[in-house]
Simulated scan of single mutants.
Amino acid sequence: MNNMLLGVIDATTYHDGLKELSLHRSLAAIPFAGRYRLIDFILSNMVNSGIVSVAIFPKYQYRSLMDHLGSGKNWDLNRKRDGLFFFPSPNLDSPNKGIGSFSHFAANMDYFYRSRQEYALISNCFTVFNMDFKPVLDRHINTGCDITVICKEEQSLEMFLVKKSLLIELINTRDETGYTCMCDVVADQDHNNYTLCTYEYTGSYVAIDSIETYFQANMKLLQAQTWKDLFLKDQPIYTKVKDEPPTRYLTGSSVRNSIIANGCRIEGTVENSIISRGVVIGKGTVVKNSIIMQKCEIEENCVLESAILDKDVKVQPNTSLIGTEENPFVVRKGTVQGALMNS
């Protein structure tokens, strides 16, 4: 399959509902499940499906995304031939109407011309799922489709499989046809001659497009079956490896039904929460139903419930941060929360 399918990830999407978490990073780089980023899922799915050439097309705030991906080593994409490619948008002012912007692709046509793969898989960057794309390609070829749309219960997942030569044609003729992206082509099937097919994905998935969906998707991972459905032994989800010591659980600490990453120091109580790398939770502090991102420091005698703390947040002693499942209390990256500030 490595000579057949090219991976293309559109990382230009911006959701207003995730503004609080995407002020300093792209949507693709938003942390998830304690140690992953959203892009890890589609990128790992591609690698597990035998794809060895992946192009990522970002637009805004992509420094953290580049830092996370690096050379692609953690996904076995640091290769002399093929591998991981990064193509930032040359025009920040042009709006993106859908997944797979043809104008963005047009600025990097050499990649498509030089790649040796015959087909291309174009995908968004914000869907959390675990899927093998090999059956999609097999069916696409056997049925003679021009474009295959991956769906779930007849709803498009905004993932498209297309012959590379047709993709190049669509890019080069975009001014004549008026098609700006793959979504336009699919939506206009009544007026073009392309054979459109759908492939039904049967597994679980969630598209992260708001704080509410982000919070709920993380919380569902605390259910054993949800975790098993997403993190499959034969189709692992890869991420950036960080060599950190194990988490320390001090005397008096209590942890129940939570995901705890490496390098933490826990002296308080944690229940039904996701704790990322390097987090400090002080004595007498209670954290429930919350998402705490990397290197946050929560000092003594604090209460956090239904809260999302972005990276490097410091919570001063005796502070209460209380939200709800429908409206979590979100704290922006690198800020300080104190008892007097919240009174």
Rank of each mutant, 00 (worst) to 15 (best):
N3H: 06
N3S: 06
T13D: 13
Y14H: 08
D16E: 09
I30L: 11
I42G: 00
L43Q: 11
M46V: 02
N48R: 03
G50M: 10
I51R: 10
V52Q: 15
K59A: 07
H68D: 14
S71G: 09
D76E: 11
L77A: 04
L77V: 03
R81D: 13
G83T: 07
L84M: 08
F85Y: 12
S89V: 06
S89G: 04
L92D: 11
S94T: 12
N96Y: 05
K97M: 08
I99W: 06
G100S: 12
H104R: 05
F112N: 02
L121W: 12
S123Q: 12
F126S: 15
F133S: 01
D138R: 14
R139Y: 07
I141H: 04
T143L: 06
T148R: 04
V149K: 00
S156L: 04
M159G: 02
L161N: 07
K163L: 05
K164N: 09
L167E: 00
E169P: 01
T173M: 05
E176V: 11
Y179W: 09
V186I: 09
N193G: 15
T195D: 07
T198F: 01
G203R: 01
V206W: 02
S210G: 12
N218F: 03
L221G: 12
A224P: 01
V241R: 06
E244L: 14
P245V: 05
G252V: 02
R256G: 00
S258P: 04
C264G: 12
T269F: 01
V280Q: 12
V286I: 15
N289F: 05
Q294R: 14
V303D: 02
A307T: 07
L309N: 09
K311Q: 14
D312A: 05
Q316W: 09
T319M: 13
S320Y: 02
L321K: 00
E325G: 13
K333V: 14
Q337P: 00
L340T: 06
M341D: 11
